[in-house]
Write a protein that binds this DNA or RNA. Structure first.
Lengths: 347, 347
DNA sequence: CTGAAAGCGCTAACAG
DNA sequence: CTGTTAGCGCTTTCAG
């Protein structure tokens, strides 16, 4: 195995502690002679000494580790978040222990537990989104926990999230202004905050036009392509009169596009589409999608920064909920259609 | 802080060692009475005992950690690899320490060093691609190293990679069969194996038609959208007679599409395009791209498996180079054009 | 059946 | 200016 401090000390003909001090750049502070210092440094280099961070961690009771748990790293949205956390904490000397829950609540709980066993100093978690007890428990046991994206509705945890409600309102307003009245929704995971806040945004936006959201116009059960494809097929078979679809994620939208293609429907001629987005390539899709763009990088970086601050301060930040603004970007997937006079006739 | 073994032992009224044995499920083996075992387990639960993995690691000289270093986690290609490694090793009880080199060789070296300091038991690295000494050094100091994607040309390291050469040949054959003779190349990082093997594939494929690759038809310097966009602009300004582009990555292709759009050129009517791919959404791009599809998941999972085997066997595998097949998928981005009779007139 | 003690590699009192 | 020693939390001989 790799040489240890003792070996270096022996090679340099000094004691363990002198070697330690020299290696840690404390030579000056301890007034170690330059000759001694040099001989230690030389010995270390010659032996290829690499300080054992495990031992250091045990001793210092600090691992310099941040645990990051996401539902699916292969999704660019979560990959970006993991990346930004990595970047945010690296200058402070922290490394990231990565966990992928595979959208499974049970796995998430297990992962959080394992990471705590590894004594991560902080946790940044994109939860599956239905249960938060394990995170609350971690948080109350004094380890900084930052939840990103799908957090609880109550302000129990430090939470970084996009402005789902406003974004949703903007998206639906855009459809309404273009004359659409019968809008289908390709939703993500029901019961999670991003999903339900967006549904609420839709309802409120429709209400301004004296309309209501027909629950039968909402389909889908995950933020995945598969869900988007299934939901679209279902929605358009049962309700061929829908003129627009609102997809709750880029994968949902991509699934929707696949289904529409299969059904021989064109965007936006036959069906308009807007999406709530999280991926950087939306402008290059078959039809450049009009979409609510989230600032994913900021979401992740902010989470990392908050965790770091908390680590430095030693106390929870006053601000629990950090809402990152979103922006509606109009592209080519929404067609203007003649306003149907009997706006109330939607169903 | 969290309770330690001593605390559990005290609470259960037994010694440290008995507590340890009971907690590790070795009660039977050590013929500990059921009552004692139960009291230990109860005490542990009551105190919320979580074994300190750092101390265990120090003691066992095993961390159960695999280091994964990639150039850019936000790129779905690398994100998938990281994910698959995570999945491949998790059942064996390993966790992944993630590093993002940001395509910077220096950072990669530093990260590898830091991860080794943290005593990762194995390294899976997608190198920036120009220098490998640090990896060779790690490998020769007995830690399993698996290089994915951009490895060295020589078989000095265990390497998992797509069949770049054959894929490239297939892509160019497809263009040639469609009548294209003047092909521009949006390359990635020159000097890396995937890049240069693909260039070689192009040359050999062209040679079959008695053609050669004009170096001026090759542009680009990274596997990024920016490089793809710049290269396309450059290529089509200088050589407006190019009828097709071969993009070496999905980001390169997306950049190319952006540039073409800006220049008012349509795919495939004005310019055909094929890409060497690594992302799952290519079928939904503006123009569904004909492309060489890599089995990214297999790339990553295989790397994880090999690392694990090596950890179990304790010796380097015989097979150094693991080549994963690729597949040409024809979509709609290649137009048939009238064969120019004077095939030699390309330039 | 259970306990005492050594030691993994390192840092930081505490002595000289 | 340098060395000795205790101890971080755990597992595992070695003794009873």
């Amino acid at each position: 195995m790799s040489a240890n401090l003792q070996a270096v000390a022996d090679a340099a003909g000094v004691s363990l502690s002198t070697a330690s001090r020299a290696l840690n750049g404390r030579a000056k502070a301890f007034r170690i002679s330059e000759a001694t210092e040099k001989s230690v440094l030389d010995a270390a280099k010659k032996l290829g000494f690499r300080p054992n961070r495990v031992a250091q961690s045990l001793r210092a009771k600090k691992t310099g580790l941040v645990g990051v748990v996401v539902p699916d790293v292969s999704n660019p949205f979560f990959a970006s978040i993991a990346q930004q956390v990595t970047r945010a904490v690296e200058d402070a000397g922290y490394h990231v222990l990565l966990g992928d829950s595979g959208e499974l609540g049970e796995r998430e709980i297990k992962l959080v537990d394992q990471l705590r066993s590894r004594r991560v100093e902080a946790l940044v978690v994109c939860p599956v989104g239905h249960a938060f007890d394990h995170l609350a428990e971690a948080s109350s046991s004094n380890i900084p926990v930052v939840v990103v994206d799908r957090g609880p509705l109550e302000e129990t945890l430090v939470h970084v999230t996009s402005d789902h409600y406003s974004g949703s309102v903007a998206a639906v307003d855009c459809l309404l202004k273009a004359g659409h009245r019968r809008i289908g929704v390709l939703q993500g995971l029901p019961g999670t905050v991003p999903n339900d806040l967006r549904l609420k945004g839709i309802q409120d936006s429709l209400a301004h036009f004296g309309l209501t959201l027909d629950p039968r116009h909402v389909a889908g059960d995950h933020f995945t392509t598969e869900s988007g494809e299934r939901a679209t097929t279902e929605l358009l078979s049962d309700h061929p009169d829908l003129t627009a679809l609102f997809a709750f994620s880029t994968p949902n939208a991509i699934g929707g596009m696949r289904a529409l293609k299969r059904m021989g429907k064109r965007i936006p001629e036959d069906v308009s589409m807007v999406s709530f987005d999280d991926a950087p390539f939306v402008d290059c899709l078959r039809v450049p999608l009009t979409s609510v763009v989230q600032d994913v990088r900021r979401l992740g970086f902010t989470a990392g920064e908050i965790a770091l601050q908390q680590l430095a301060n030693g106390r929870r930040p006053e601000r629990r909920r950090n809402v990152i603004p979103v922006q509606l970007v109009q592209r080519d997937s929404v067609a203007q259609i003649p306003v149907c006079e009997d706006g109330a006739s939607l169903e």
